[in-house]
Structure formats: C-alpha cells, structure tokens
Design a protein around this nucleic acid. Structure first.
Length: 463
RNA sequence: GAGGUUGUAGCUCAGCCGGUUAGAGCACCUGAUUGUGGUUCAGGGGGUCGCGGGUUCGAACCCCGUCUCCCUCCCCA
C-alpha cells in the first residue's frame, strides 16, 4: 500500500463548495455585465502552439510560459532522439525553442488566443466583433499573495473598430461589475501608450518608455532623487532627466496635466495624439453620466505587455495589499503578427482570483445562505426509502431543490447530515407516515415538527 | 532570478537546555438516546515530526542538503 501524501502543484488551488459558490457569484456578475454590453462568449483550448504564444508578451512573459513536452518522446526515431539530446543540452544553458522537444504551451492570457481565433475565422466574423471569454490561464511565476500559477481571467474585447467609445464602455463595465460586487473603493488608472512614447521622445530618449515608467513609478516610494539616479543608471542622460521636470511635478485634474504635457509635446506628434485620445475617452465616459467614474489619469501607468499601442487601464482596489484586479488596453496590431494587419482592438480582463481575495479580505461577500438543498428526505428502511421517491420527484417538479439520504442509516446520522449542510427542512418517513399518509416535516432552524400532506409540504417549503 | 520565513494528527498549533511511550483544541467515529441534529457527558481512531543525509549512547529539537508554504523585490491578474 502506498503511503504517498497527495499534494498540489505549486501556485494552484482547489476550490471547495463554499469557495465555489462565492466564485460563481463573481463569475455570474461579470458574465451578466459582459452580455449586457453586447459581448458574446468564446472558448479556446488550454494549449496553443508555441508559435502562437511566443514573442507576444515581451521577454519576461516568454520566460513564464508553460511549455508542454511533446508526447511519447521515447517513441521518436533515433535521428530525432539525437536532435532532442542536443536541443535539451542547449535548453539547459539558454532559453531556446526546440520543436522536437516542445511545440505546444499553456495559454498565458486570453487575448492572444483570441487574436489567433479572429485571424483563423476572419471570413465568418462580422466586425466589429465583441467577445468575452472566461477561462483559466497559466504563468510560471513564483506564487505569493494574490499571485497564482493557475488563475482565471475574464476578458472582454472588441476588434475591428478604433472607436474610442469602446474604451469608454470598458470604464463603464469596470464600474458596473465592481459596484455590483460591493467593491466601492477603487481607482481605474488610465494612460495612453502614445503619451509614454511622447514623453520619451520629448526628453530625447525615444524607445525607452519602458525604463522610464519603471523608474517614475517608484516616485512615491523612493523619492525623486533616487528616481533620477535610477534613470541615469538606466542610460538616460542628465539632460534628459532634467527635461523630465514637468512630468515629475504633474498633478491636479486631467485638464491641468494636459496643459503641462501639451507644452512638453511641442515636438512630439505621437504625444499630442495620445493626449487627444485620452481626452476623448474621458469625454465619452462623462457623457454616460454615471456619476463617480473612479477614473484617474496616471502618466506612470505602463503595463508590461508589449502589444498595447493606445489606451491602457489598470484597476486597483483600496485598503488591501493586492495587485491590480483588472487591466487592459488597446492594441492596434495584435493580429498583425498572424498576417492580418490593420485590425484594431481593445480589451480588458478581470482577475477573479484577486477580486475574490479582495472581497474576502474586506468582508464583502453577501451573508446569504449559499446552501442549495431545501429539503432532505430521511427514512428508516428500504420500504420507506422507496416510498419517498415519488414524493422527491414531485418536489423537484415544483422546482424545490431536494434530496433523499441515500442509505438506511440512523436518523441521528441523517439529521446530522442535514445540519452540517444547513438544509432548512427535513421530511421524516417511516412506518407511521406510510400508514397515515401524512409526512413529518421538521424545521431544522427552530426544531418544530408537524404532520403534513404532500400539498401542504410543498406550500410550506416553496420559496 | 535575488532575499526573508515556514513545515509536528484532517485543521490551528504546543513541544524548555537533545533524554525514555510526541501533546492540546477543533474536526471525525462510537455510546448515553434500537424514530430526532445543532447542547452536554463518557469513550475511541488517527503521526515515516516535509524529504534525504550527518553528529550523538540517544534527534521533532543540533549541522548540511533538498523540497514546500507564506512574504518582499522584479513583473503581473
């Protein structure tokens, strides 16, 4: 007999019934909102060809991809085996791809598989195409608070239009979902990739917006002097750093920040375009008149994914130490790498696992009794069990969630079962009940019992 | 990838300076109650002390390695 203790891969979790009802509450809320805004569902396989996945997430992202070993390598031909050995040795020292060893990987997000789907089905798809997708993704990150190796994303994307209305509606959906879940204190940070490019250009360091953001992002944490130092370490000239002065002192309303940036962007057309786009998105959001938009312009918002080209979003919940719970942005050329240029898209994603953690920590889950069974039939022997079956069927036909204790056990055990499952009603069936035709209905909350007919039972128990 | 931390029953954790048979609470099972749960009482089952090695007469405890948990940085959902 094996004594091996069962275990779970790092960064993965089971979700028991109590967790699942809470998770489903989140999934249902998100799904309903997506559908309300006109999005249709899509599912794609857990695994994709590596050619689809690699090169889409930047260097960091590629390193975190889970690659799947080709099946049955031991059955390969000898010549292939030699190639495998060589490639494997190379893999031990460099991060290389080897089709003889691995050609598939687990999906890293839902956007790239979506882009692949769009390209492969371009003739059937009616544009603009709005789809939502709720599936797990995998990343070989080291797990920590709010970070898992398997987690769900809930994506909604629109492709085939560059209308900024899509961006505005994303802001609306973020607001709707979070407020329905009871998360009231949060910020939707918004920026535009073109503004970042503009700043890098204006400062005389085009193409270095990534380094720029990483450093500027730390302004609050480590102070201005250290940020400037870090910028120089990252290869920015003294002159460039000095030109960043206005960026460092950015504050106030969007209009005020826009003014400062406009001056900076005198020589950067890209920067001006970014500002203009952002302004329009802000305007469109306002036009929906939803009250508090939670929207905040943040020049330091960068986001790692390399495919964003326009607006970028990130949502941060307040009062909890958990990373962003939602994020997204516009990508002008995601399908371009699959040979279908000129399709602009914008999308975003909710991180259910993090939303769950936030809600748990802030105690936001409704106190509802999540038990689904309403009535349990308990019985004393085989004859009584058989007697309950047509009654059970009748209750179910009336839409009442009900079950019968499947074996003839002690009543104590059956009641204990009902109790631990928080089932509110138990119907006792034994020789007395079968003789009289009246059922004993027990209310588990207050402990009372009464004799009832089937009709009375249904009436008493129905919601 | 860098750093810190943790691992003892199903769960939460005690276990002193190395000493004889490793404990508690909760949970579970049985009985008091052969047709009545959530209260009470009595009893019971459960452990390769993360794994491998070392020191020692003797290791849960000390040393080395390794894995794992959680956390920070980086990055992200």
């Amino acid at each position: 007999m094996s004594n091996q203790k069962p275990s779970l891969p790092r960064g993965t979790r089971d979700f028991g019934p109590d967790k699942m009802v809470k998770r489903n509450f989140i999934f249902d809320t998100i799904k309903a909102t997506f559908q309300k805004f006109g999005f249709m569902p899509l599912e794609t396989p857990a695994m994709e060809n590596l050619s689809v996945l690699t090169g889409k997430y930047g260097e960091e992202g590629d390193q975190l991809l889970y690659k799947i070993l080709n099946s049955r390598p031991h059955e390969a031909r000898d010549s292939e085996k030699e190639k495998m050995r060589q490639d494997f040795n190379r893999l031990l020292t460099q991060n290389t791809n080897s089709p003889v060893l691995t050609e598939k990987g687990l999906r890293y997000d839902l956007t790239v598989p979506f882009a692949r789907y769009v390209v492969m089905n371009r003739n059937e798809i009616k544009f603009p195409f709005k789809r939502y997708q709720i599936q797990p993704v995998w990343r070989g990150d080291s797990p920590q608070k709010g970070r898992y190796r398997e987690f769900y994303q809930c994506d909604a994307d629109v492709v085939g239009t560059d209308s900024l209305l899509c961006e505005a509606e994303i802001v609306l959906m973020m607001n709707e979902v979070l407020s329905k879940l009871g998360i009231k204190d949060f910020t939707i940070k918004i920026n535009n990739r073109k503004i970042l490019t503009g700043i890098a250009e204006a400062v005389g360091s085009p193409g270095k917006e990534g380094d720029l953001c990483v450093a500027i992002d730390k302004l609050d944490k480590i102070g201005r002097e250290k940020v400037e130092k870090e910028l120089e370490e990252r290869g920015f000239s003294r002159e460039s750093v000095e030109k960043l002065n206005p960026v460092f002192s950015l504050k106030g309303s969007f209009a005020e920040q826009k003014k400062v940036l406009s001056e900076l962007f005198a020589s950067s057309e890209t920067g001006r375009k970014g500002l203009e786009e952002l302004g329009q998105v802000m305007q469109l959001v306002e036009a929906f008149e939803i009250g508090n938009t939670h929207l905040e312009f943040d020049t330091t918002l960068a986001r790692g994914l390399s495919y964003y080209t326009g607006a970028i979003f990130e949502v941060k919940a307040h009062h909890v130490q958990i990373g962003s719970i939602s994020g997204g942005g516009r990508y002008d050329n995601l399908t371009g790498s699959f040979g279908m240029p000129g399709i602009s898209g914008v999308g975003f994603s909710f991180g259910v696992d993090r939303i769950y953690d936030v809600m748990e920590e802030l105690n936001l889950f409704p106190q509802n009794n999540f038990t689904t069974t309403r009535v349990l039939f308990s019985h004393f022997d085989e004859a009584a069990l058989l007697y309950t079956l047509p009654l059970l069927k009748q209750l179910r036909e009336n839409g009442i969630n009900s079950e019968v204790y499947p074996e003839a056990g002690k009543l104590k055990k059956q009641l204990d079962y009902a109790n631990s499952k928080q089932i509110p009603f138990v119907v006792l069936v034994g020789s007395d009940e079968m003789a009289s035709g009246k059922l004993t209905l027990k209310n588990m909350q207050i402990g009372s019992q009464q004799q009832v007919t089937l009709e009375e039972l249904i009436k008493a128990v129905i919601l």
